[in-house]
Nucleic acid binder design. Sequence first.
DNA 1: TTATTATGGACATCAAAGGTCCATAATAAA
DNA 2: TTTATTATGGACCTTTGATGTCCATAATAA
Lengths: 160, 160
Amino acid sequence: MEREEVNIQFSKSTDYALHALIHLAHSEHRHNIGIKELSATLGVSESYLSKVMSKLRRDGIVRAVPGVNGGYELARPAEQITFLEVIQVIEGRQQLFECSTLNSQQHRLLAEEGAAERDRDCQGKSECLVKKVMDGAEEHLYQYLREHTIQSVLDEAFQR
Amino acid sequence: MEREEVNIQFSKSTDYALHALIHLAHSEHRHNIGIKELSATLGVSESYLSKVMSKLRRDGIVRAVPGVNGGYELARPAEQITFLEVIQVIEGRQQLFECSTLNSQQHRLLAEEGAAERDRDCQGKSECLVKKVMDGAEEHLYQYLREHTIQSVLDEAFQR
DNA sequence: TTATTATGGACATCAAAGGTCCATAATAAA
DNA sequence: TTTATTATGGACCTTTGATGTCCATAATAA
Ligand code: SF4
Ligand code: SF4
């Protein structure tokens, strides 16, 4: 009877950002695509999309020029813009897993076991295996996202 | 000046669930670990942790018995409980990426390009490359999480 | 100078995470 | 058969973040 709606997924903003970048890449012969055209292409409101674009500009993914015939264009070639980069700009850069029980008995128990390991990796961080598994998962995910760029999507889409 | 705090990370509940399961696995010679002991071990309130445990029970990860000397125990051997399973029980099973612009011009443009592909994979779903990259990322992540179990953490922690 | 376009701040809304409290059900021990 | 104990689930609360709008301002090319 309950409507459980827990969430571990990327935000709509990330979706919008990726789609906008693809449109810019696809129209790179032209210059300065305005927010009007972008929002029409994606079917998203100008106000909201402009927030997303501003973020992309602040992080050097796109360039923006105001005024007549202004708009956006990629700041770098599309093959240098990875999925990971876009996601991190929009979603932030916190870790996929952050310890919430660092002051617990259990943390002490599990982290102390790493004593042998702390000889080589002596950073005093004392992370346990749970954290290591989760960090490994994150790195796996990131590595995959690093290998895919905006250009790679276009390449596969428009080869015929 | 802004405090951007966007979030793509696992919830505290997932953290609690993993830690609780590790405690149960570590104490499997005993039976029926009560919520009192669990919450003391993790340093988390009984009320909240009991919600998490109930979820784990409803999905067959742990067994629970009320009454004097009651408590929780693993419903299956620890080597059969994967990280992925625990995460999905707590976080739900939606996809990491869901299309938010399915009615856009761009979707039509990108999805139509898959015409050649629809001959073999004729499901009418017409997903584009963006979605495929993201789904690939998800599958990558999941595969990794499937390969790690509660037992594997204990093994590495208590080998000396 | 002017029309146009992006920017950023201020709000508004809504859903979900995180958490508490309590009444009830279930159970084992006495 | 009590009784003490423990888990369960519903109701409720608070805070946060995602999503979104609106407007005043800055910047720029024509
Ligand atoms: S280091 Fe391990 S035991 Fe300690 S809080 Fe993090 S996940 Fe939990
Ligand atoms: S299928 Fe591709 S283009 Fe269509 S909404 Fe999904 S990600 Fe966007």
